[in-house]
């Protein structure tokens, strides 16, 4: 869950896709379903890929949008991520949900980097999409702040951005981020702290200016 140890936004109670399974039996069934889907995907069966798509599409899209801010670019990157996942499914060794999610996000991270490199830009945001479920005034303010945030994040390292997205957009716990990025919890904490301190400095300076 997000940053209970910081004054920053609390985790949203709902998951990005579907509801959390309630009991142990449901969790086991869900785990088993995902493992079966991974095995089916390895056999290039469409049904397996559909399950993976349903489960991880929102995560991948949120990651891309958090990083790029550009609606159409985020959609392109999300699509590229799933196509690349099909091509590299054999590199997915585990069938547990956190590992599969980490695998998708890892592919997405590299697709985002490729995209940024291709376009020759650093987090410039041009929103071409249609926002959903927010009133226009709130949207404008939210959008402006979000774009400022992305612009400020351009001064961070790729790994720092990666950790911030996982923590504050995808609501991953420190342990989940550590497992997904193959770091220790201490290292993740330290990187998050440095990244937030840097962001704070940049944003306060901008506001003052």
């Amino acid at each position: 869950m997000p940053p209970a140890d910081t004054p920053y936004p609390a985790a949203s109670p709902e998951r990005l896709i579907g509801d959390e399974p309630d009991g142990v039996g449901e969790i086991l069934a869900e785990t088993n379903r995902l493992a079966q889907a991974v095995r089916a995907a390895r056999r290039a069966e469409e049904a397996g890929w559909d399950v993976l798509f349903e489960r991880f599409h929102a995560d991948v899209h949120a990651y891309a949008l958090a990083r790029l801010g550009d609606w159409s670019s985020a959609e392109d990157v999300t699509q590229e991520t799933f196509v690349a996942a099909v091509r590299s499914i054999r590199s997915l060794r585990e069938e547990r949900e956190p590992a599969v999610q980490a695998w998708f996000l890892h592919i997405c991270k590299h697709k985002v980097m490729d995209h940024v490199r291709r376009k020759g830009r650093r987090d410039r945001t041009v929103d071409l999409g249609v926002p959903v479920a927010l009133d226009p005034a709130q949207l404008t303010e939210t959008k402006l702040r979000a774009d400022d945030m992305r612009a400020a994040m351009a001064d961070l390292t790729e790994d720092q951005r990666d950790i911030l997205i996982r923590r504050f957009v995808l609501d991953q716990s420190l342990e989940e981020v550590a497992a997904g990025t193959r770091r220790t919890v201490g290292a993740v904490k330290s990187m998050q702290h440095r990244a937030l301190a840097a962001l704070e400095k940049i944003l306060v300076a901008r506001r003052a200016a």
């Binding site: 958090a66 702040r145 979000a146």
Partner: peptide, 12 residues
């Protein structure tokens, strides 16, 4: 800023 960024990024 973090809240705004999060809301903006989680648009479906």
């Amino acid at each position: 800023y973090l809240i705004a960024w999060r809301e903006d990024s989680l648009r479906p």
